[in-house]
Computed example of a mutant assay.
Amino acid sequence: MATPQILQLHVWLLDSEPPIWRRFEVSDQITLDALHGVLQRVMGWEFSHLYDFEIVGDRYASPFPVPLDGTLDATTPLLASFQLTKDTQFTYTYDFGDGWRHQITVADILPWRSDVKLPRCLEGDRACPPEDCGGVWGYEGLLERLADPEDPEYEELLDWIGVDFDSERFKVDAVNAQLQSV
Rank of each mutant, 00 (worst) to 15 (best):
G70C: 03
A74R: 09
A74F: 04
T75N: 06
T75L: 00
T76C: 00
T76K: 13
T76V: 15
P77K: 13
L78R: 13
A80V: 07
Q83C: 10
Q83M: 14
L84G: 13
L84D: 11
K86M: 12
T88P: 03
Q89W: 00
F90I: 14
Y94W: 10
D95N: 09
F96K: 11
F96E: 09
F96V: 09
G97S: 11
R101L: 15
R101N: 14
Q103T: 15
Q103D: 07
I104F: 11
I104L: 15
I104C: 11
T105V: 13
V106P: 08
V106K: 11
A107T: 08
D108L: 05
P111K: 02
W112P: 01
D115G: 01
V116K: 05
V116H: 05
V116L: 07
K117V: 12
K117I: 10
L118A: 07
P119R: 12
C121Y: 03
C121M: 04
C128W: 05
C128V: 04
C128D: 07
P129Y: 12
E131P: 06
D132A: 08
C133F: 06
C133M: 02
C133H: 05
G134N: 03
G135Q: 04
G135T: 01
G135I: 05
W137F: 14
G138L: 02
Y139H: 14
L143N: 11
R145F: 01
L146E: 08
L146A: 06
L146H: 07
L146I: 01
A147K: 05
D148V: 08
P149I: 01
P149Y: 06
P149E: 07
P149R: 02
P149K: 02
P149N: 03
P152V: 00
Y154R: 01
E155V: 08
W160P: 00
W160N: 03
I161S: 07
I161Y: 11
